[in-house]
Simulated scan of single mutants.
Amino acid sequence: MVITGTVGKVGLIGHPVGHSKSPEIWNDAFENQEIPYIYLPFDVSTGDLGSAVSGLKSLGFRGFNVTIPHKVSVMNFLDEIEEEAVEIGAVNTVINDGGRLIGTNTDGEGYIQSLQSETGLTLAGQHIVLLGAGGAARAVGTALAKAGAAQITIANRTMDKAEALASRLQRWTRTNAILLEQIASPLQDASLLVQTTSVGMSPNKEACPIDPELLHSDLLVSDLIYHPRQTRLLKEAKIRGARVHSGLGMLVHQAALAYQRWIGKDAPIKQMMETLDQSLKNE
């Protein structure tokens, strides 16, 4: 594609963003569908967030994705927050609608689409243990609760954040908040373990968020990390006979939902998945 002044612009803001695979996925999809758009990543420090949001608007960006650590604080600089993002308490996608910046969140729905399409799991009635209580946990936890989970136990390093998320999810399901070291008993009775923290992410590939001996064959273990493709947690789960689900699908499905909002077309999900998979294999 020839870059001219008429090329549409979307992008990503976060800190850091150098590791992100999103530019490869998006730009390959644009080329595949012959859409005159470009996707650009921007490393934005916390103190520069407001200026960056204003700058992207002034430069005519159609929208942008938001990643760590800005998913909550970016809400202060937007004109409107959609209900899904309000419920989650975080924004991962911003749409520029004629100069009005609208925040939404595609993480939860993208995760559910990935989990169900890849595992066939029926979420109604599941007993779930959620590792972590940050922005990703809020998005995924909200989606799981609204999908009919029977109970969600939030295990976190600090109790205050676990309790805050448990309180937020109580409107849809039964919840419980525990410290990470108290996970043994709830995990024994769980059917789904969802890992939302950064523990095990490259380059710290040998790190595991819990004692692997606590994993069992009645679990489906889902790790939101996609780099590496198979975390140590997933490897340990497979050794013990558990089913596993990686974070590759969530990254693609949440991106596809943003793609539709920005471009007005269905994203080439299969191709985006292949692009991501090949990129990780080449590292």
Rank of each mutant, 00 (worst) to 15 (best):
152 I>L: 13
88 I>N: 04
278 Q>P: 13
96 N>T: 06
148 G>D: 05
172 W>A: 09
269 I>A: 01
242 A>F: 13
221 V>M: 09
215 L>C: 08
279 S>H: 10
198 S>W: 10
39 Y>W: 05
189 D>K: 14
169 L>V: 01
143 A>P: 02
188 Q>V: 10
194 V>G: 01
182 Q>C: 08
201 M>V: 02
135 G>H: 03
131 L>W: 13
61 F>V: 09
218 D>P: 02
226 Y>S: 06
268 P>E: 11
280 L>S: 02
51 S>Y: 13
97 D>E: 12
79 D>I: 02
57 K>E: 15
197 T>F: 06
60 G>S: 07
107 D>I: 01
183 I>E: 12
280 L>W: 07
85 A>F: 03
61 F>I: 08
85 A>T: 08
214 L>E: 05
197 T>L: 13
76 N>W: 06
64 F>C: 05
28 D>H: 14
29 A>S: 09
107 D>G: 04
237 A>G: 13
121 L>S: 03
15 H>Q: 15
250 M>L: 05
15 H>N: 14
35 I>N: 00
46 T>W: 08
54 S>F: 03
180 L>Q: 03
121 L>E: 08
95 I>L: 05
283 E>H: 07
98 G>L: 09
53 V>T: 06
77 F>M: 12
37 Y>L: 15
143 A>H: 04
225 I>P: 06
125 G>P: 04
264 G>F: 09
202 S>G: 06
14 G>N: 10
276 L>E: 10
263 I>C: 01
138 R>S: 07
145 A>N: 11
160 D>T: 08
22 S>Y: 08
40 L>I: 15
73 S>P: 01
210 I>V: 15
91 V>Y: 06
206 E>W: 07
142 T>E: 09
248 L>H: 03
104 T>E: 02
100 R>M: 14
40 L>G: 01
182 Q>V: 08
240 R>G: 07
258 A>N: 06
198 S>G: 03
150 A>C: 10
272 M>D: 11
100 R>W: 07
203 P>D: 12
79 D>S: 14
252 V>K: 00
120 G>T: 11
8 G>R: 09
37 Y>E: 10
103 G>I: 05
231 T>P: 09
253 H>Q: 15
194 V>T: 00
86 V>I: 15
26 W>R: 03
79 D>G: 12
259 Y>C: 00
225 I>S: 14
74 V>E: 04
79 D>T: 06
195 Q>T: 04
135 G>W: 07
90 A>D: 02
251 L>H: 11
232 R>E: 12
243 R>W: 04
257 L>A: 02
218 D>C: 09
88 I>E: 00
240 R>V: 02
